[in-house]
Design a protein around this nucleic acid. Structure first.
Lengths: 143, 143
DNA sequence: AAAATAAAGGACAATGTTGTCTTTTATTCA
DNA sequence: TGAATAAAAGACAACATTGTCCTTTATTTT
């Protein structure tokens, strides 16, 4: 569904969001520990997200990554778009470039519905929607 | 969604199915041309599908790949399972191994519905469901 | 039996994804 | 100003996916 990079990105963003709601900035190291991901790789991902303004960052002591009010409202869709591109939003299920309503591939119509569901989920699920209390019982980010 | 290999596999199977309904066996070369895929790579894929009994093959002149009555009824799901494994059928949307009903990841419940849709589509769509006449107007397999 | 056909199998090359390490730049604090 | 902190950036290594080519095996036809 999503690339591994994208999975890390989503988990990392949710982790940062949780901490941001507690007014904490977090270092790459902490994020990587928090979501059980490879540290240096996670750094690259966070840098990428930051470059694309999905995330704020500050250098130096007391610095780290964080999300402001606006950032917390970003839907997962934005992360996916930046990391994986929008293949999943627009692409044909069979990878056919010319597939369209006029020249649909065999699974075009069924796939359209599924894609609609995916988009809907990714658009309505916001990065900041998961609290830490929740996380104890209903979610966790480590593998 | 699916790997490139899997996309080729699905398109190839549909192509072979169409020809099988016309009582034609097809060579790798013809399949590759029919679906606009790399020939040698397509050969590997067809061999794999054949090894896994999703497809029949015959060597020598007049040989090639074909599907019998049973084969035409195979759902796309079987192809996906063999080529991509069943990650898409069972895996967590965020790639978390421990994600489950009891310890759901943030998108677990929404994702469950989507997965259900994907499975349903793949199970109910049969390899032999697409006729050549259809293909002129409503489907094509080339990119 | 020999030639032709076509899949099967093995080896390998190119590319993309994932993961690691080191150096540089910016910021804070003493 | 100097030391410490932390992100940014660059280089590269490991691995997986995708793609190509060559040899072998099985079958048919002449």
């Amino acid at each position: 569904m999503f690339s591994k990079t994208c999975e890390y990105a989503i988990r990392a963003m949710i982790y940062v969001a949780q901490q941001s709601k507690l007014d904490r900035r977090v270092s790459v190291k902490e994020v990587a520990e928090g979501i059980a991901s490879p540290e240096y790789f996670t750094a690259k991902i966070l840098q990428n997200l930051s470059r694309n303004n999905l995330l704020s960052s500050a250098k130096g002591p007391g610095g780290g990554f964080f999300l402001d009010k606006q950032g917390l409202k970003a839907p997962l869709a934005e992360i996916v778009r930046i990391i994986d591109g929008d293949d999943i939003f627009t692409g044909c299920g069979l990878g056919l470039a010319q597939c369209s309503e006029i020249q649909p591939c065999p699974i075009h119509h069924e796939f359209k519905q599924i894609r609609k569901g995916i988009i809907s989920m990714l658009e309505k699920t916001k990065v900041g929607a998961f609290t830490e209390e929740n996380s104890v019982h209903t979610l966790f980010l480590k593998r």
